[in-house]
Write a protein that binds this DNA or RNA. Structure first.
Length: 259
DNA sequence: ATGGCGATATACTATCGA
């Protein structure tokens, strides 16, 4: 079962790239973030034509998440824990692969949180607390679970080309990283870290200041696996070449293979 | 020390992102 997470930075701007990527990679499940459109504006027909079921949780202008699946999916929208939260940042689905193996998959767009010390950072930390509570509930099911998405968290200094640039940033502050560790320490496995302890593996390069050309990247897109999912892990990789395409997203797809 | 880039909205500028 091939599962991908990708912050596309507007699905309408990136439709050609998404179609090209789906054709070349043929994933079973794709978690998208920052679709930046309402549900009605999602290019559904183009994706369905490639054999995918499409479930979206969009909003106007900002944010928005979606899950594409070759097989039908049971879907829930929104992260529990705050009925007043109007931002579309979480969608969760149960699906299968062609062999009928089941997985629960979430597409998460965790808040950026900058600048630190503002209500934006408080919202990020509260969202992470809600995610920890929800993950604890889901882990109790003892099933194949993949929490995938743009976490906007640089877990360690190994995950940035220039960690010194990020010391005061909401993506790297101690409180942010503490909560990420608290989440992982519930019993989740960081899929990329399960296959390599090396630094220099990035998933985001800023559009500005030649970050891509200098490989000045950070690793902020993650797939966290329940023990049952980790037991099935056979591959985890970053599809870095996509960043070199014409007019790319600033994030690239991250992909895992579960047996 | 600063800006640099890109997307969206009602848009010749502001906001957001990371």
């Amino acid at each position: 079962m091939r599962i991908v997470t990708w912050n596309v930075n507007s699905v309408r701007q990136r439709l050609e790239h998404l179609v090209r990527y789906l054709r070349e990679t043929e994933p079973d499940v794709v978690c998208l973030q920052e679709i930046k459109c309402v549900d009605e504006a999602f290019p559904r027909l183009e994706i369905e034509a490639l054999g995918y079921n499409v479930e979206t949780h969009g909003q106007k202008t900002f944010n928005g998440v979606a899950i594409l699946s070759k097989r039908p999916i049971e879907t829930q929208r929104g992260l529990p824990g705050d009925e007043a939260d109007a931002q579309a940042r979480y969608i969760e689905a149960v699906t299968t692969d062609a062999q009928g193996r089941v997985a629960r998959v979430a597409s998460i767009y965790l808040p950026n949180g900058n600048p630190a010390g503002t209500e934006k950072y408080a919202y990020k930390l509260a969202f992470m607390d809600r995610l920890i509570r929800h993950a604890r509930d889901l882990l109790a099911h003892e099933e194949t679970l993949v929490l995938a998405g743009d976490y906007n968290v640089i877990p360690t200094a190994l995950d940035a080309k220039r960690p010194e640039d990020w010391l005061g940033d909401a993506l790297f502050l101690p409180q942010t990283r503490e909560r990420f560790r608290e989440l992982v320490n519930l019993g989740l496995t960081d899929a990329l870290r399960a296959v390599s302890n090396e630094g220099g593996v990035y998933t985001f390069w800023d559009y500005q200041a030649g970050a891509w050309q200098k490989n000045n990247g950070i690793r902020i897109d993650h797939l966290l696996l329940s023990p049952e999912a980790a037991d099935r892990l056979v591959e985890a990789t970053v599809d870095k070449h996509v960043r070199g395409w014409d007019k790319p997203s600033d994030h690239v797809p991250v992909r895992i293979e579960l047996k």
